[in-house]
Simulated assay, not measured.
Amino acid sequence: MRSLLKLIRLELRKNKINLYKGSLIASLAIMLFMLLIVFTEIDDPGDFATYADVFDGVHIFVKAVFMVFGAVLISKLVIDEYKNNTIDLLFMYPIPRKKLMAAKLMIVSLFMLITIFIANVLVGAAIVGFNHYFIEAISGELTTELIGEHLIRAASDAVYSAGIGLIPLYFGMRKKSVPTTIVTGVLIAGLLSSDFGSFQLGNQVGVSLFLGIVGVIIAYLSIRKIETQDVA
Rank of each mutant, 00 (worst) to 15 (best):
V68Y: 09
V68L: 15
F69M: 12
A71Y: 06
V72F: 12
L73S: 07
I74L: 07
S75Q: 01
K76T: 00
L77K: 01
L77Y: 04
I79W: 01
D80T: 08
D80H: 08
D80W: 04
T86V: 13
I87E: 04
L89Q: 13
L89V: 10
F91C: 02
Y93N: 13
Y93M: 14
Y93I: 10
P94H: 13
P94R: 11
P96A: 14
L100R: 00
M101W: 01
A102P: 01
A103N: 09
K104Y: 07
M106V: 09
M106L: 15
I107E: 05
I107T: 11
V108N: 01
V108L: 13
F111H: 08
F111E: 01
F117T: 05
A119L: 11
A119V: 04
N120C: 14
N120D: 15
L122F: 12
V123E: 03
G124H: 05
A126G: 10
F130L: 15
N131A: 14
H132Y: 15
Y133A: 15
Y133M: 15
F134L: 10
I135W: 10
E136T: 10
I138V: 09
G140T: 07
G140R: 06
E141C: 06
L142D: 01
L142K: 03
T144Y: 11
G148L: 09
E149R: 13
E149A: 12
E149T: 08
L151V: 11
L151W: 05
L151Y: 07
I152N: 13
R153E: 12
A154E: 02
A155D: 00
A155F: 07
S156K: 07
A158L: 00
V159S: 05
V159W: 06
V159D: 00
V159G: 06
Y160R: 02
Y160C: 03
S161P: 02
A162C: 06
A162H: 04
I164M: 06
P168M: 02
L169V: 04
L169R: 03
L169D: 03
K176S: 13
K176G: 05
V178L: 08
V178W: 03
T181M: 12
I182C: 13
I182G: 07
I182D: 11
V183F: 14
V183Y: 09
T184Q: 05
T184S: 07
T184R: 00
L187F: 08
L187M: 11
A189M: 14
L191E: 04
L192A: 03
L192W: 02
S193E: 05
D195S: 13
F196A: 11
F196Y: 15
F196G: 11
G197T: 10
S198F: 05
